[in-house]
Design a protein around this nucleic acid. Sequence first.
DNA 1: CATAAGATTGGAAACGTTACCGGTTACCTT
DNA 2: AAGGTAACCGGTAACGTTTCCAATCTTATG
Lengths: 347, 347
Amino acid sequence: MRDFASRVSIRDIARAAETSVSTVSRALNDHPDVSPETRERILRIAQAYGYERNMLAHSLISGRSGLISVIMPDIDYDYQLQFLRGMTHAAQRFGQELLLTVKDTGSETIEACQSMYRRGIADGVIIFSPPVEGAGALRQLQEAGFPVVSFHPPEPLEGLTSVEPMDYEGGVIAVQHLAALGHRRIGMVVEAPDRIAGYERLRGYRDALTQAGIPYDPDLVIAIPAKQPLIAGRASIRQWLEASVEFTAVFCFNDLVAYGVIEELASHGIGVPERVSVVGFDDIPASEYFGRGGLTTVKQPITQIGELALETLLLLCDGKSQPGQRVQVPVELVVRGTTCVAPAATR
Amino acid sequence: MRDFASRVSIRDIARAAETSVSTVSRALNDHPDVSPETRERILRIAQAYGYERNMLAHSLISGRSGLISVIMPDIDYDYQLQFLRGMTHAAQRFGQELLLTVKDTGSETIEACQSMYRRGIADGVIIFSPPVEGAGALRQLQEAGFPVVSFHPPEPLEGLTSVEPMDYEGGVIAVQHLAALGHRRIGMVVEAPDRIAGYERLRGYRDALTQAGIPYDPDLVIAIPAKQPLIAGRASIRQWLEASVEFTAVFCFNDLVAYGVIEELASHGIGVPERVSVVGFDDIPASEYFGRGGLTTVKQPITQIGELALETLLLLCDGKSQPGQRVQVPVELVVRGTTCVAPAATR
DNA sequence: CATAAGATTGGAAACGTTACCGGTTACCTT
DNA sequence: AAGGTAACCGGTAACGTTTCCAATCTTATG
């Protein structure tokens, strides 16, 4: 018996089994053209030697690496983690390896996708929140036969395979909840309304307002950049307060924005939820333990979405599905401690 | 100009530049044996074609894949995320790719390490919290020339390269803080005291008690399993209450345990910090936003630790450092809202 | 007994790259 | 003018696999 932890090639096995590399290869790959005895002997020896096939050589010839590339702008938010977790679970289930790449800017993430294809490292790419300008490049990759799945895809996503939460419905149920509590002055702090997530949530917000008979007031909508949501959330509240905009509820683009909003309100002595109700989006784990009995928020099954993204990509890799599909995942409202009936005077 | 997103080989470049593959390879690798004109021509064409070298073929011949394998039990805790983030940052800085593998059990993580080596996929492995039984296998890998860096290494870690927080010092400063506030009945909820992190934190706890002239009471130490820290934290408090053990402070193995402890105390109407002070460990991001003005905890610079782990591994891969080093990272106390002076009657 | 068919095997090419070695050219020295 | 040297280049082998093809051996069939 050899050293347990050493690198063994198919050649070593062939030598030990007194046969050729071709036969060993066939035996290991369940090819029928091997006699039962030879196969048994080879498998036994391979086992004893701790042989595992060299993935590089195998990939080189098979044209598939068994690696899935996951490309993200950063993992600065628990949301991304949960998405990633879902993918790791699915990867484990399917025996796939995950290649994790983090890039600072959107354009770098697109370049990373192209690079994955050109260097032949990965069989496909899952890209998190690709920038709008990257849509063309992604489409080209897809047309070249390289599977790409976008999460939070860019607009227009025509032709791209994507996985998304039901953003529009999320906006609707958040506002419906607030309206049902008697709120009439409902603000929204929205990130990147030119991108699909922001655009759709905003659309849901507006439609739900209309449906509740509440006029839409553009002063109550603030667009913020994607970076540093906590700070942006705080700044939004300051902006409203300085402009003396009246509001009794805020629907936030995500939970971190909501944290910032609540912090800023608290620092002005404005109680949540007594004076202002706040709804988040995503339901990251921390929101359950958030003060005031937790954050009311629109929950995405983000871990399952991660699994779904990987499954979608694997289907594409295996040619079992056609590119261009748009997978949409339902969301649900989780009512916790940051929303309550509107102050009587405002109703 | 060719299709922007297509797979180009060195052969295509050679054909287009009307030269041989050898020359192209030399030109691309800054080998001196190429005339400036030829080199310039080749580089221009390669650029125009969007050539990037096929990583599989390159790795096969060079024996290095440029991939670093990161193996974790699960990423169910923000702590792991921050560690991972640190590695992604460092990877980006060094132009390395990260291969992320998540396995359910400790033994599977060890097998995954061996597999990385045998399949030749990765140049080295960073393993998160390897099980005690795996130490031998990791040592073997290291001896075979395959670099391994353990974070939260197993005991005994003799010969293994490791990166660790200063657990002992963390235990000391946590208890010093509580003792300085007048606490005399300080409990500890410790995870896996047979592993290095738990063992050292417990040792710090005991030494700090002695130093403060407080007798050690084994009834005040509860060992909990590693899974489901929230539930285990709650159960620990129930156990003490049922046994009528007296305590005014709890030092918890990590922040999640602390959350559970505080929740359970609250459910019995025991105020934190008025009646019981609680200290956590790690300082995950949520602890800053935790109710009661945040959780008092021992902060690890976990993101930097991740970067450090990757840098340590890369040095090993490049043969610029010898295996077997033990890198220890300082920790610090962050005082927030869950600790205050002990109730007068108990002092 | 001869031939066909089938089972099993080994040799060689290929995947895309790099490294080594030998060959060609041009220029310089004596 | 002969020889030496440096610069540059192309062919080929190798990395560890898989795949194709040809070769051998066995067995069945006429």
